[in-house]
């Protein structure tokens, strides 16, 4: 859990170089560099508005970047000739607000992309989905509609939905921020589990204790800049930057670490 384990071929799953993103006059990301090695967990921490979510949305091409470049498995996905749908098929995203489809059952939510995008037969997609649901403790919920589930259950369904297409990379955008405190644990357990499976993940999070525990790499964003990055021990234990120290102090005072 210290340094990122070396990948078989050594090349990063996701790489960002000098990424710049603006919304109108405000610069949301400035010169962002990031490397995510295979089978590692990267935690993005920082105050609200520091650019964590935007960084994830850019990695999934839900936002166009202004400058710089992003590579997925060595292929430049910010090349305008890239098919964004093909890129998104390889990346799973879980959102803060779950964003499940309210008119579909849990099973339909999960099998939509495998069936319609990846052309998997219905029976096979459903079997895979049921297996995943079972694993995440949602075995009885396949036929339920999302609104009937608790927040924690909905978020776990959203994770299954992202997993169902067997993604190369999972992006988690503050997936516990909308949950009641007692439901946070069940969702974080799932992430721990996925790490055990060797899934490559990038998570924007406010759960510092969790980031410290599961992350191989922690990036502290401040004002759209990666101010500090390194192992959790280094960033949390011995931050180099004064701003990081101040941020962590506030977190500790708020009882979140």
């Amino acid at each position: 859990m210290s340094d990122a384990p070396a990948s078989p071929d050594g090349s990063p799953v996701l790489r960002m170089e000098a990424v710049r993103k603006t919304f109108g006059d405000s610069v949301v990301l400035r010169d962002v560099d990031l490397e995510v090695a295979p089978h590692t967990v990267t935690a993005l921490i920082g105050a609200s508005g520091s650019g964590k979510s935007t960084l994830l949305r850019c990695a999934n091409l839900l936002e166009d970047i202004d400058d710089g470049a992003i590579w997925l498995d060595g292929e430049e996905i910010t090349d305008p000739r890239t098919d964004p749908d093909a890129v998104r098929r390889r990346i799973g995203v879980v959102f803060q607000a779950y964003n499940l489809f309210p008119h579909m059952t849990v099973l339909e939510n999960i099998t939509l992309a495998p069936r319609r995008v990846h052309g998997v037969a219905r029976a096979e997609a459903e079997e895979h989905a049921r297996g995943l649901l079972e694993r995440l403790g949602l075995g009885g919920k396949a036929g339920a509609y999302p609104d009937r589930l608790s927040g924690g259950q909905q978020q776990r369904v959203a994770i299954v939905r992202a997993l169902a297409v067997r993604p190369r990379l999972l992006l988690f955008d503050e997936i516990t921020a909308a949950l009641d405190p007692e439901l946070v644990g069940e969702v974080l357990d799932v992430v721990r589990d996925l790490k055990g499976d060797g899934m490559t993940m990038v998570l924007a999070t406010h759960e510092m204790g969790f980031a410290r525990e599961v992350a191989d790499q922690v990036c502290f964003l401040d004002g759209g800049v990666v101010l500090e990055h390194g192992t959790p021990e280094q960033v949390f234990g011995d931050p180099r930057q004064e701003r990081t120290r101040r941020f962590l102090r506030r977190i500790v005072e708020a009882g979140r670490l």
């Binding site: 998104r88 995203v93 959102f95 489809f101 939509l112």
Partner: peptide, 24 residues
């Protein structure tokens, strides 16, 4: 966000419209 969720699953614009947006 519904469209964003559909697109992030790799659905094309047309598929997102057909399976996610129009039914709702």
């Amino acid at each position: 966000s519904q469209r964003a969720a559909a697109r992030s699953l790799g659905l094309s614009n047309r598929q997102a419209l057909r399976y996610v947006v129009l039914p709702q």
